[in-house]
Design a protein around this nucleic acid. Structure first.
Lengths: 283, 283
DNA sequence: TATTGTTTGTAAATATTGTTACAAATATTG
DNA sequence: CAATATTTGTAACAATATTTACAAACAATA
C-alpha cells in the first residue's frame, strides 16, 4: 500500500487543516514530502504540528518514518527495469561461480555505463575515424590482450593503426614515428605501470592525443589523457574482470564502422579475397 | 547540467575517498543522495566530512544545497512522461550504439548460460587444475587475443601453460612437445580456420584433450573436442562480440583459483615481489 | 629516512529539524 | 448564548543533522 493510497483511504477522517496538507501532498506527489517538515508545512500553509499529527494519524511513527516510506516507494519507481536475474545459469546454485560472475559482470556494465559520458564516447569515435591521424596502441601486462584485440579490428576498418612493441624499452624510439595530432590508445588498469605513465608523459609533451582505458580508480595517466574511459573491473575473486573493457572496445568498433562504412566495406571485401586466396579459412 | 554530469565531469579531480562516494552516488542515483548526509556517508563507507568536502568541491554551498539540486532534478524526471529508465546509459537515446550493444551483450550472456551445461564447466575446471597435464593454447586471427589473455592468467596460477606460436606452420613441430593426456585449448569462431581444424585432428590422434571455445554455430572442431563451450557472439553490427567468451575465460580462471588457492597465493606473492623488484609498477 | 604536504576521520560546536506542551481560536451542543 | 469539545498554531524543548576544527594516517619528495 503506497503512501498516496493511505492518504486517500483516510482522507475523510482528516480535519480541515489536515486535508489542506493532504491535498498539497497529493497535488505534487511525492516531491512535496521529500523536503523538511517545515517546507511541507509552509507549502500546505499549515503549521508543523499539523503535519506531525497528520503523519501520526496515517500510521507513521514520526516525520522521518513517513519520509522513509516515500523514499522506499521512489526507489521502486526509479529502480532499474533491467532484470536482476539471480539465476543466470540453469540448474546451477546461485553460489556457483557462473552465477556470481554473471551478476558481477552485469553490475559492472550497468555502473560503467552510468558513469560514462556519452559525449566522450562520441568524441572518441570521431577522433578514431579521422584518417589523417595515425593510431598507436599499447597495453600493460594484463591489458596487452585488449590492445591486441583492438588493433586486430582497427586494422580492418582503417589504415595506419599500429601496436607499440611489447618491450617498453623500445617505446621512446617508436614515439619518433608518432606525429602531433596522432592518437595513442593506452590500456592501464591497476596495478598501474610506471613505464606506461612515462610514455604518456612523453606523448603528451609531443601533443599526441591520448585515449585511455582504465578502471574505476583511474590510472595516474588520466591527467595526461585527452579522453578516458573508466571501466568497472570488480569480480568475485582475486582477479579483475576485463569484460566491460572489451565491451567498450567492441562498441567503439561498431560505432566507427557505422561512420566509415563506405571505406570499410571495400576493405573487408579485399580482406575476404585475400583469405580466400590463402585458403586459411573454411568456406 | 545535472548533478550526475557534474560528478562525472569532475571525477578525475576527486581523491580516492571522494571517488568512492561519487561511485555509490552514481550507482544508485539519485536515491543515495536523498537521505541524510550520514546515511550517504555510511552507504559510501566514508565519513560525513568527506561528503561535505565533496559536495563543496562540486560547487554546492553545503549538503542541503546539494540535496535541493537533486530534488529539483527529480522533479523534472518524475514529471517527464518519457520513460528514461529503459536505458543502460544515462541521457543517451535508446538507439545509441552503447544501449544497443549493452542489450545485445546481456542477451548473449543470458542465452549462453542457459545452454551451458554446468557439468562441462566443472569438468573443465577439474581438467585444467590437474597439474600433471600441461596446457597448450591456440587461437585464430581474431580470437588470438583471447588465447593470449587466458595464457597470461593461467601462467600466474599454475605451471606448464604455453601459447602455440602465431604461425600455423610451426604447429606440427610444436605438437611433438605435447604428450598424451595434455590439454589443448582452442579458440575457433567463424569464420572457422582450416589450419586450426587440421591441428585439432592431429592432436586428437595423439590423445590430447581438446577444450574448445566456439560460437553458437559450432566450429567443425567440436567433433574432436573433449569439451566445448558455445558462446553467443551476436552484435548489432557486422562484427561479432567476444564478451561472452571473455566472460567464460575469466569465470574459469576464478573457479580454478578457488581450487588452487594454496599454490596460487604463493605464486602470486612471488610475482608481486618480482614486480616490486623491477619497479615496473606504481605502488 | 626525515620532512612536507595531502588526505581522511574523530570529535566537538553549531545550526536545523522534529517533537511536545500548552494556549488561543474555532466549532459544536445543550 | 454559554459551556464544552475540537482544532490549530505558538513557542519551548529535545533530537538529529550539518558544519568546523583539529589531529592522525598516509603518500610524496628530497
Amino acid at each position: 500500500m503506497t503512501v498516496a493510497e493511505q492518504i486517500r483511504s483516510q482522507f475523510d477522517q482528516l480535519t480541515p487543516a489536515e486535508r489542506e496538507l493532504a491535498n498539497t501532498l497529493i497535488a505534487n506527489y511525492p516531491m512535496a514530502g521529500l523536503g523538511t517538515i517545515m517546507e511541507l508545512a509552509t507549502a500546505a500553509k499549515v503549521s508543523t504540528p499539523t503535519v506531525m499529527r497528520t503523519v501520526k494519524k496515517l500510521g507513521f511513527g514520526g516525520f522521518p518514518a513517513f519520509q522513509n516510506a516515500l523514499h522506499d516507494e521512489l526507489k521502486q519507481t526509479l529502480s532499474d527495469p533491467i532484470d536482476k536475474h539471480d539465476h543466470w545459469a540453469n540448474d546451477v546454485p546461485a553460489e556457483h561461480m557462473l552465477n556470481q560472475f554473471a551478476t558481477a559482470v552485469t553490475n559492472n556494465l550497468r555502473q560503467s555505463l552510468k558513469q560514462l559520458d556519452h559525449k566522450t564516447f562520441d568524441d572518441v569515435v570521431t577522433l578514431l575515424t579521422e584518417k589523417e591521424r595515425s593510431i598507436h596502441i599499447v597495453g600493460g601486462r594484463i591489458t596487452h590482450a585488449f590492445a591486441d584485440y583492438l588493433q586486430t579490428h582497427l586494422q580492418v576498418i582503417r589504415k595506419n593503426s599500429h601496436m607499440l612493441p611489447a618491450s617498453s624499452g623500445l617505446w621512446p624510439h617508436h614515439l619518433l614515428n608518432v606525429n602531433e595530432g596522432d592518437i595513442l590508445v593506452i590500456f592501464d588498469v591497476r596495478r598501474y605501470e610506471a613505464d606506461l605513465l612515462e610514455l604518456a608523459k612523453l606523448a603528451n609533451k609531443r601533443n599526441v592525443k591520448i585515449i585511455l582505458f582504465t578502471d574505476q580508480w583511474l590510472s595516474p595517466i588520466t591527467s595526461y589523457a585527452t579522453h578516458y574511459f573508466s571501466c568497472r573491473i570488480e569480480a568475485p575473486s582475486g582477479w579483475d574482470s576485463g569484460v566491460v573493457t572489451l565491451f567498450l572496445i567492441e562498441t567503439l568498433i561498431s560505432a566507427m564502422e557505422e561512420v566509415l562504412w563506405p571505406e570499410t566495406s571495400s576493405r573487408l571485401k579485399e580482406l575476404e579475397d585475400i583469405f580466400d586466396f590463402t585458403g586459411r579459412f573454411k568456406r
